[in-house]
Design a protein around this nucleic acid. Structure first.
Lengths: 282, 282
DNA sequence: CGGCTACTTGAAGGATTTCAACGTAGGTGG
DNA sequence: CCACCTACGTTGAAATCCTTCAAGTAGCCG
C-alpha cells in the first residue's frame, strides 16, 4: 500500500483537471506549469499543514494521497476530505494566518510548492484560469456539503458505500485510478475517522460489504471496489454535487471571463407559500 | 418565533460585515449598496434555492434566518448551515447550472436579489472588495469543516453545545443578536436535522442541557443561551476556525491593499421539514 | 372547539462503541 | 532465518448512545 499512487500518464495534473472545464491555450498551460515547477517528494504520514500553526507555502499534489483533517481538543480525529492528485493544499495561506485544519500525506507523495502570490498573478494575467480556480473551489465546497449530509444522515453502511463511490469517481476524474488496479490506499482507521465511526465498527461494516460482494477482500492492500453499481444503489448515489454534467461544451464558454454571465429567472416560493419539502413522520 | 429577526440598527449588513475586515471607502460602500438595492420580504418556510433545479438570482440576506440543506433521495434532510444576515445566497449561480442544495427561509426575511454579474463587476472595479469576498468565502468553508468535525466526532450533547456557541458568536459578529433577547429562532426539528439526530433525542438532550442550567426554557419561543462559558467548556470550544483573531489591525492592511493585493479574486460563493426515520441497513 | 405544530415522555430495539483478546503481515535487527 | 516489534485487521461480549414507536401535553389559529 506504500507505493506511489502515480497518475496514469505523465500528464500534468493541473492541465488534466482544468482542461476538463476549459479549452486551455498555450499560455494557460505555461501558467499552470509554474504551479508545478518545484516538485518534491514526501513519505507517507508526513505533515504538510498543521492545525493551529501558520500556513507554510501552498502546494499542488502531483502524485499520491493526502488527508485533510481536524483534531478535537481530546484527540479525536475527523478526516474532512481526501486530497487527490491535482488538488491544492493550503491555498488559504494568503487569507488566514493560522491553519484551521491539518493536512498529512497518506501515501508517499510528490507535491509542488509555490508562493501563494502566484494565485493572485494567475487571476490578473489569465482570468480564464482564475475562473477555473473559482470553479474548482466551488466544487470542493459542494463535496464538503455532501460529506455533511453523509455524516448526519447516512448509516455506516450507506456512508461507506457513498465514500467509496465518490472516491472512485474523483479518481477517474483526476486520472489517479490505476488501470488494472482499483484499490484505494485507505486503511480502516482512516475510513473510521472519515465516516465518524469507530475502527471496530468499520471493520464489521467492511466485512459485511465484502460478504455482500460489493467490495474485494483487499485487506492490508487497500480496499477495492468490485460492484460500483451495487454500491451506488446502496447509498442512492446522486452525482449532481460533483457538477460534471455539462462540462464539455457549455462550461467552456461560461467560465471564461470574457463571456457574459447569464441571468436566470427567480425560483421562489414554489409550493404556493407552503413549507419546504418535508417528509413528516406520521 | 415568527417575528422578523431584525438587525440591531438599520445599518447595511454587508457594510457591517466587511468593515470588520476592511477599511471601507466611500466607493466601497456605494458598491455594496448595489447588492442591497432590491430589497424584498419573504415569509417563513419559503424556498429560495431548490436542490436539483437551476439557480435563480443570487441574494444577500438582510434580515431573518435561512437554512441551507440537502435532501437524500428518501427524504432525510440534513441542514448544512444557518444563513444569517449579511450572508450571500446562491452565489454559485454563475458557476453551476444546477443547485446542489436548497435554501429556505426559517423566519420571515428580508433579502435583496441581485444579478450574479455584479460579483464579477465588483472584482473588476473594487478589488479590495473582491478580496473581502474571498475571505468571506474561506470563512464559510472553515465553518463547514467544523460542522463535519462536529457531526463525525462529537456526541449529541457536545454537538448541541457547539452549535449554540457557534451560532451566538456568528450572531454577535453579524449584529443579528437582539439586545435584550438572546433567543435563537430554531426549532428542535431544525436542530435535529443540523446535528444529524432524531427529533426525540434532541428533545431529551435539550432537556438535559436545560436542567444543567446551560440554556433557558425557551420552548416554542426559540432556544436561549444562559451560560455561554459553560457551553464552551462542554464542547471544548476553540474559536480558531472562525478566523477572527487579528481582524482589527493586521487584516485591514492585508485584505485591502490595492497596492500590494496578495489575494486576488478567488471568488466563489455559496452562497423546513424533518428527516424521516433512517432505514435499517440490510 | 377542532386542528395544527412543536414539544415531551416511556418503553423497546437497533446501531454503534468500548473493552479486550487474538491474528497476521511487513520491517528490523540480531 | 528467526525473534521481535509495530501497524492493521478481526472477533466476541457488554455497555451506551441514539432511534423508533407510540401516546400525550401544550400553545396558537381560525
Amino acid at each position: 500500500m506504500d507505493r506511489i499512487w502515480s497518475r496514469v500518464n505523465g500528464e500534468s495534473p493541473l492541465v488534466h483537471k482544468f482542461s476538463q472545464c476549459l479549452n486551455l491555450e498555450e499560455e494557460d498551460c505555461r501558467q499552470l506549469a509554474r504551479f508545478e515547477a518545484a516538485s518534491r517528494s514526501m513519505g507517507a504520514r508526513e505533515d504538510i499543514v498543521v492545525e493551529g500553526e501558520p500556513y507554510g507555502q501552498a502546494a499542488v499534489l502531483l502524485e499520491g494521497w493526502c488527508i485533510r483533517y481536524k483534531l478535537l481538543p481530546d484527540g479525536r480525529r475527523q478526516v474532512v476530505d481526501f486530497v487527490l492528485p491535482g488538488c491544492f493544499i493550503g491555498l488559504h495561506a494568503h487569507i488566514f494566518e493560522v491553519a484551521d485544519h491539518s493536512v498529512s500525506t497518506l501515501t508517499p507523495c510528490r507535491l509542488s510548492f509555490f508562493d501563494p502570490q502566484l494565485v493572485a498573478e494567475t487571476f490578473a494575467e489569465r482570468p480564464r484560469l482564475g475562473g477555473a480556480l473559482v470553479w474548482d473551489n466551488a466544487c470542493r465546497e459542494a463535496l464538503l456539503m455532501e460529506r455533511v449530509a453523509s455524516l448526519g444522515r447516512r448509516s455506516a453502511y450507506e456512508g461507506l458505500a457513498h465514500l467509496l463511490v465518490e472516491t472512485c469517481k474523483r479518481l477517474q476524474w483526476c486520472g489517479g485510478l490505476m488501470p488494472g488496479d482499483n484499490r484505494l490506499p485507505i486503511s480502516q482507521t482512516v475510513i473510521a475517522d472519515t465516516l465518524g465511526l469507530s475502527l471496530v465498527h468499520v471493520s464489521r461494516t467492511i466485512s459485511k460489504m465484502r460478504s455482500d460482494g460489493l467490495i474485494e477482500d483487499g485487506t492490508r492492500r487497500g480496499i477495492a471496489v468490485r460492484d460500483l453499481d451495487g454500491l451506488m444503489q446502496v447509498c442512492g448515489y446522486d452525482e449532481t454535487y460533483l457538477h460534471r454534467e455539462h462540462l464539455p461544451a457549455r462550461r467552456r464558454s461560461r467560465m471564461g471571463a470574457e463571456t457574459n454571465l447569464r441571468v436566470r429567472p427567480l425560483i421562489v416560493g414554489l409550493g404556493g407559500g407552503g413549507s419546504p419539502p418535508r417528509p413528516v413522520p406520521p
